[in-house]
Write a protein that binds this DNA or RNA. Structure first.
Lengths: 99, 99
DNA sequence: CGAATATATTTATATATTTGCATAGTTATT
DNA sequence: AATAACTATGCAAATATATAAATATATTCG
């Protein structure tokens, strides 16, 4: 019962991170960002076939909630996982999904 | 990149499971239900100090999305994890949380 | 500087979630 | 059958989230 030191702030932050992840497109984004991979906004928007602004929006949410980090290099902004272990969440949920 | 066979249905279901978990009270509930523990609605509503009906709502959401299972025994309904590995998600998110 | 490329923000509308209260359904006991 | 204990459901108001379109900001290069 690790998290259940039940400090409300920690629960709140954990919920916010999970809420950030809990979206089909954002799960797909995390799927592409395993193994320390770094991708640009354009690469992601082309991979997912969604609008650039929508992609940026999703990435912004993931970054804001501490799931992703970004690093600008010239015109591009590369996004990548803040904690590698976050891939486990996608793996785990994927295993628990019967599809 | 396990989940990114990117079948939309699977992404959708994964998102729904995560969305179910992504709430402070529901994370706390999962925190109490590690190690195959089974708790009743009343036990949970007393542990969390929230309304009985609110508790039942949260449990219903978790059950509906495939995170929990329930089993009635007399007057009580016991709730417990459907897949033990789901505790990993709470552990993981808890580790990634600086608090 | 001006044009082109890449990314971010804003805005508005539609949709979904949370919560408590009241109520109703279930089961055990007397 | 009546009561008590436990759980579930329907409703409504407040709040939060999603989506797309338009616009704005940054960076590079000629």
């Amino acid at each position: 019962m690790k998290i259940s030191e039940l400090e409300p702030e920690k629960l709140e932050q954990a919920a916010n991170m999970l809420k950030a992840i809990a979206h089909p497109m954002r799960i797909a984004i995390l799927g592409y960002l395993d193994d320390g991979k770094k991708l640009t906004v354009t690469e992601i928007h082309e991979l997912l076939n969604i609008e650039q602004s929508t992609t940026s929006h999703h990435l912004g949410i993931l970054k804001d909630k501490g799931v992703l980090q970004s690093k600008r290099e010239g015109k591009n902004t590369y996004y990548f996982l803040k904690h590698c272990s976050l891939s486990n969440i996608v793996d785990c949920i994927s295993n628990c999904t019967h599809g």
